[in-house]
């Protein structure tokens, strides 16, 4: 099994391309949903110690709305769509037309809950289907799970598989950005965390030599 510590720059570039294609499609889906143009950052693929994972998103205690999906199939893994709480409130207000949604009520109200969950579902779904098309691997997302909490508490859940083999996580991170740089509920992070065994499958599917 290839462990993240053994990755070459070429391996990381291949993973970046997955982030690029996946988030590109997801950005298009989000843009259609909110009728705004959505830009995307260049994906980053980082090998980070667990302690620093939360720094990617803005600090361990930052409050975020996170949709989590467990990916099963040929290359199992974990996927997160993460919005800062302010962005999540904007997004749900926009999608539902209900301006009374606040940081405190976003998880309690059925309508904002399902708006967020469904957004995560659509975006992660389009990310994964392009990942699947690109690699020819069969991937099936679970139903989306939603929570609002501190980044560290949320992300540590996605590190469990990797933590059994390593103290490092390999995270494919792509950020979505509103074209006008306004806070309009579209600035989010896609994080893909393949299980340790999945990297070999992904590289093999793309004909990338392991060593």
């Amino acid at each position: 099994m290839i462990t993240p510590e053994q990755f070459t720059d070429f391996h990381k570039d291949v993973l970046k391309e997955i982030g690029n294609i996946g988030a590109g499609n997801a950005a298009t889906a989000l843009s259609k949903l909110v009728h705004k143009s959505v830009d995307m950052s260049v994906p980053s693929v980082e090998l980070v110690p667990f302690n620093e994972v939360t720094e990617l998103i803005g600090g361990a205690e930052m409050v975020v709305a996170a949709t989590f999906l467990r990916v099963s199939g040929d290359a199992p893994g974990n996927m997160f769509f993460i919005l800062s709480i302010t962005e999540a409130v904007h997004l749900t207000q926009q999608l539902t037309g209900d301006q009374s949604i606040t940081e405190e009520t976003i998880l309690d109200l059925e309508i904002s809950r399902s708006a967020l969950q469904e957004t995560g579902n659509i975006l992660a779904g389009s990310y994964l289907s392009s990942f699947s098309d690109f690699t020819g691997l069969k991937l099936a997302p679970s139903v989306p799970f939603l929570t609002v909490d501190m980044v560290a508490a949320v992300l540590s859940h996605g590190l469990i598989e990797m933590s059994q083999v390593s103290d490092f996580a390999i995270i494919i991170d792509t950020q979505l950005i509103d074209s006008q740089r306004n806070k309009t509920g579209v600035e989010g992070h896609f994080l893909l965390l393949p299980d340790p065994e999945s990297f070999q499958t992904i590289f093999q599917a793309l004909g990338v030599p392991i060593k």
Binding site: T3, F50, L159, I160, S163, Q164, V165, S166, D167, P196
Partner: peptide, 14 residues
């Protein structure tokens, strides 16, 4: 983070 070191599959051990 994890209940038991028995499930460790890695080369390094923390």
């Amino acid at each position: 983070m994890l209940p038991s070191s028995n499930i460790s599959k890695g080369s390094s051990f923390n």
